[in-house]
Design a protein around this nucleic acid. Structure first.
Lengths: 184, 184, 184, 184
DNA sequence: AATGAATGAGTATTCATTCAT
DNA sequence: CATGAATGAATACTCATTCAT
């Protein structure tokens, strides 16, 4: 007789669970914000509460997993020889259009060290491209990587609270505002 | 028989309570964020929970009251004959430095109609000054009031999560990024 | 139409709730041990969870309230001119027969300061009576108040885990063991 | 394909696992108390959760295994021709100083039958030595084995919640209180 | 037989909201 | 109309126990 409770799918489900949790968190964070109940993430993933906590002992570690993929993609793009700063910013923009949860995440003042680490990874990859663009005379020579990170944060802020369909247009307008501040 | 509880100050306290609640909410929102417990607002105001709910049936109405004063000040400034767009933006910046709670407030996607109304009031007062500045050739002619509101939101986003002392500097950097996007 | 939810009995229920919570806690601690779920206390008292936490913000403060009455009774007895050490010990024994939760309470190593304070109150009242009894030559002159407190703890330990009906007999046997260690 | 998980050491590990679990439980119970999570025991033992449950289906059976060794040692000592009651009590005291978890274990009212069985074994070995000592006129003739068991429990109670270093001194004071109650 | 991941019931705690006084 | 206690739904987190591998 099938039990009402979810089947224990065994250790084999581990990898699938982890992936499902990350996917669910991506959705939930994007939909209900970074402060959404973790139980909603577990439920969306079709996974027990305990499994969620086993894989991700706290909210931050879950969020980091969600963004890991995005940051990795950015790093990969930045590592490509021909990639310019604009290419990287374009990818960042796409990611922000998909989800602005990163902004929510760094919104909390007592920033977790791990969050700072992610932001630093982004800052690092921007730094290289920025220097490159500055050497090419395309970007204001006095612009710092911190300025660039701030600009990205401001961009994301312009997208939050807008429904997904409106975001691409909003991103264009936001860049129109910021662009001149960056260019040489 | 004397009551141990705080004296019921009676109906006459209504106006005072309302003012105290708004002041308390301003502090609490600025200090503990827009998501701070409402009980903290009541306690800070020295007012009963019930009175808080009588005056402000929900969090948004309390927040609106808090910002009312700021918006009113903006409208007053905008109404002054000599006031320029830059003057208005400067005041807005000061308000954002004092508290970025407005950002937190609009962070939630299901934007309350009343919030839209406040934003529209800000948009309205900016519209006039913007047109004026555009006539004077100081601002890009294609810049819309919506662009300006977006810029203000982006500015505020650049200030959130920074400690109060760092905000003035951050505001300067943020405007440095945005300025060129506005100017003619 | 009466709601399924418990009626909000209003502020007037405060005193009654507090008393009911203490009574319930006395029962629950005696029955299910000091580690019993607080929800059980609230349920037994017929009181909402929130009310429990309002009256007693943590487990210790609830326990203190439970024992306050007993300690007060001890202090009152000790304050009576004719009361001897034996009288006080007899009352302590009666209290231990009724509930040994106090033992559980002080069992935890990171002893709360407030718990230490209660124990000290008991130690204080024992100290006086002990000195008196020692002057009368009825108690070993080298016995310290700490020894006495230890003896009381050992007595209680002898009663724990025995069902209530067997406790009076057990107390007698325990005192038979300890008595000679106290007497001069 | 090599598994990331701990190598399944196979059936041959059974005996070793059992021993490791007992040793780990001894440590964990002594350190974190009898209520410590069983997962901590498994982890300390370097053994899977499932194996723990295979060897010891519940907390009590694990605890019993832990104390088995101690009881066996007591029985061995008691079986030695020259061993006196005092020798046995001294060994019990040493065991209590090392860990008072036994007290925690019997703290729960719904005493498990198996716990009663252990206690009875201790009572049995004390019975012989007690009779011996009573024949020698060293112990009160009316003292029963149950009294002795109670005294041991009271001793242990005097040690609980004291930090390890203070226990030897506390044991001495506790025996000073009890000694006269035992002696003839 | 060992392993460790999966599972969800249970518990503590918070806080928005209601309501007797 | 003010007051503040009452209420319980909601959420985070833990841990005993089961089970696929």
């Amino acid at each position: 007789m099938p039990d009402v409770r979810r089947m224990n799918r065994g250790p084999g489900a581990a990898a699938g669970n982890r992936a499902a949790l990350i996917a669910a968190a991506r959705d939930v964070f994007a939909t209900a914000g970074y402060d959404a109940p973790l139980s909603m993430v577990a439920r969306t993933a079709g996974v027990g509460q305990g499994s969620l906590y086993r894989h991700f002992p706290d909210r931050v570690s879950l969020a980091l997993a969600v963004f890991e993929e995005g940051v990795t993609a950015l790093e990969a793009l930045a590592a490509e020889p021909g990639a310019t700063l604009d290419d990287v910013l374009a990818l960042i923009t796409e990611q922000a259009i998909a989800s602005t949860a990163f902004i929510d995440m760094v919104r909390v003042p007592p920033a977790d060290l791990r969050l700072i680490a992610v932001r630093d990874r982004v800052a690092d990859l921007l730094t290289d491209k920025l220097a490159e663009a500055q050497r090419a005379g395309r970007i204001r020579p006095d612009l710092t990587p911190e300025d660039l990170v701030m600009a990205v944060g401001m961009l994301a802020a312009a997208l939050v609270q807008r429904p997904a369909p409106a975001r691409r247009v909003a991103a264009a307008r936001a860049w129109a505002l910021l662009r001149k501040g960056l260019d040489a």
